[in-house]
């Protein structure tokens, strides 16, 4: 991050950032108390602009709202976060319908045949104890890098995503792991238990591509978070994403993968989490 990123505080408070930049800036806020304070003040200022706009809604709106809240479960206070993950060890849940995470567990569908029990056990204590800084990890998701090029003139404007796929395909240590049926981009079948994922990974390049198909959109105001699961139990968040309209996902990861033994996907609040707060919906083991 450059000092320049501070100047995004105004655009952020006005909700005038693109999604990618917003994710970046929020990661920055988590580690910059000065910006956090400034954003709070500027949000309060922007809200004053909104306070001028008064228009009475139709009277029946209130009844509709009240009826809907009766059917809406409230989120728990943030607090001791991340209840320990307790997934049945050989089953990994896929959200067949987007639920409110942490309130109504998704139906559990076995998906990852190569998922080891050890891995899931690993994920649980790690989630409980490890606080992970989102930035400064030497990990950058490529699709964010594209925007970074605009944020910080000087970074190359080639698309690292395309470059990494080509390089990956030629890597001597390319490993391809598929769970579920091979991803079919146009798989729009009603039976979403057919979700699948494929990971192409090359430790020597420090690059991986995560592909998935048949996934449901992330629940409202939530996003999927992609994690690297390290052999020592550490979890590194590498991307926040939603599925494309056809149910597919493509995420490029550039990171030190030498100690990574799995990639996991959880549902998180849309601004992301420092550690998984829900059970993994997908887990792809890179080891046998």
């Amino acid at each position: 991050m450059t000092a320049d990123i501070h100047t995004l505080a105004g655009a952020y408070a006005l909700h005038a950032l693109d999604d990618d930049e917003r994710v970046l800036f929020e990661a920055h806020l988590a580690e910059c108390p000065a910006c956090d304070q400034e954003v709070r003040e500027l949000e309060a200022t922007a809200a004053r602009l909104g306070g001028l706009l008064r228009e009475l809604p139709p009277p029946d709106l209130k009844d509709r709202v009240l009826a809907q809240i009766d059917a809406t479960r409230q989120l728990p206070p943030p607090g001791p976060p991340a209840p320990p993950l307790s997934v049945p060890l050989t089953s990994v849940a896929l959200p067949t319908t987007p639920p409110a995470p942490a309130t109504s567990p998704s139906p559990v569908v076995p998906v990852a045949s190569r998922t080891s029990e050890r891995l899931l056990r690993l994920l649980a204590p790690a989630a409980a104890v490890i606080a992970i800084a989102v930035v400064g990890l030497g990990v950058m998701v490529v699709n964010l890098n594209v925007r970074m090029g605009e944020l910080e003139p000087g970074i190359s404007d080639t698309s690292p995503g395309e470059a990494s796929v080509a390089a990956l395909l030629g890597a001597h240590d390319l490993d391809i792991v598929t769970v579920g049926e091979a991803p079919q981009p146009s798989d729009a079948g009603a039976d979403r238990s057919g979700a699948s994922a494929r990971v192409m990974v090359s430790p020597s390049l420090g690059a991986a591509v995560f592909l998935a198909a048949g996934m449901d959109p992330a629940p409202h105001e939530h996003a999927y978070s992609l994690w690297l699961v390290h052999t020592d139990g550490q979890l590194t968040p590498v991307a926040l994403f939603d599925v494309d309209p056809d149910g597919t996902v493509t995420q490029h990861v550039e990171a030190d993968l030498s100690t990574v033994e799995a990639l996991g996907v959880t549902v998180e609040p849309e601004q992301g989490s420092l550690q998984p707060s829900t059970e993994p919906v997908m887990l792809v083991s890179l080891t046998d």
């Binding site: 100047t7 105004g10 005038a16 500027l42 309060a44």
Partner: peptide, 24 residues
């Protein structure tokens, strides 16, 4: 330019904040 707009948004809000006496 993008950079100009970015800084104008921030400077503008900061001026408003100060004029309004907004505290975080």
């Amino acid at each position: 330019p993008l950079g100009t707009i970015k800084t104008r948004m921030r400077d503008g809000l900061i001026r408003m904040r100060d004029a309004l006496g907004v505290a975080g």
